[in-house]
């Protein structure tokens, strides 16, 4: 495992920790999109189907379990926890996320590495992950006061994607036959979705002003 991959996984983990900190400690999910969180739970469920069938490493298994457990518990907190769910900004989280699922599934049936259940589910999870941030970005645009933890959460998620691209470039030059169009194209699309957010996040940090996205 190269340094970019490890750093990518760690920023991904950090984003989850930041979000859990906000939800668990501050008991608030203000500014967090439940739609995006539901999509992530679906992404991990579809991608880690082989969790108990194909053992890769202890690191791999533990990380997968962490992402599965954290994504489902975040959804549970936002829907069921009696204090947290009251802080959910339902009126502004209106992205029709169900309409992302079917096209991703159709695309996975058409474009996959192999036409098997596991491979189609894997491709589906890659496509869905690429667009899962959209409801969150829309909600951020509609949020007047984006708190620091929410901004950091999205920043770490975006950083994870950038680091994964660097990891692929590294692996492409160091590992033979390392060509994976599906994840590369989807991963680049996913990263580009953050470009706008990154710009405003870095500007707010540089100018030391509160983060706000133009509508």
């Amino acid at each position: 495992m190269n340094a970019f991959r490890l750093a990518g996984d760690m920023t991904h983990l950090l984003s989850v920790v930041v979000l859990l900190l906000k939800i668990h400690t501050i008991k608030s999910c203000a500014g967090i999109s439940l739609k995006t969180q539901e999509l992530y739970a679906l992404v991990f469920a579809a991608r880690y189907l082989d969790l108990f069938i194909h053992f890769i490493s202890l690191y791999n298994t533990v990380m997968k379990l962490v992402f599965l457990a954290s994504s489902f518990s975040i959804v549970w907190y936002m829907r069921r926890h009696k204090i947290v769910r009251r802080t959910y900004d339902k009126d502004h989280d209106t992205f029709r996320h169900h309409f992302l699922v079917l096209p991703c599934l159709a695309l996975a049936l058409l474009i996959n590495e192999r036409f098997t259940f596991r491979e189609v589910m894997w491709a589906f999870s890659i496509y869905l992950e690429a667009v899962a941030i959209l409801p969150q970005l829309v909600l951020l645009q509609r949020t007047r006061n984006i708190d620091n933890l929410t901004g950091q959460y999205v920043f770490f998620l975006g950083a994870y994607r950038v680091l994964y691209i660097l990891n692929w470039i590294y692996r492409y030059f160091t590992e033979p036959h390392f060509v994976h169009w599906i994840s590369w194209v989807a991963g680049i699309v996913q990263t580009l979705l953050y470009a706008d957010f990154f710009y405003y996040y870095i500007m707010s940090w540089k100018n030391n002003v509160k983060l706000e996205l133009p509508a």
């Binding site: 996984d9 082989d50 194909h54 890769i56 791999n60 997968k64 590495e113 390392f178 994976h180 994840s183």
Partner: peptide, 10 residues
């Protein structure tokens, strides 16, 4: 398969 080693990513 070409994808096997790739699926060690999360």
């Amino acid at each position: 398969s070409s994808g096997t080693n790739f699926k060690d990513e999360l």
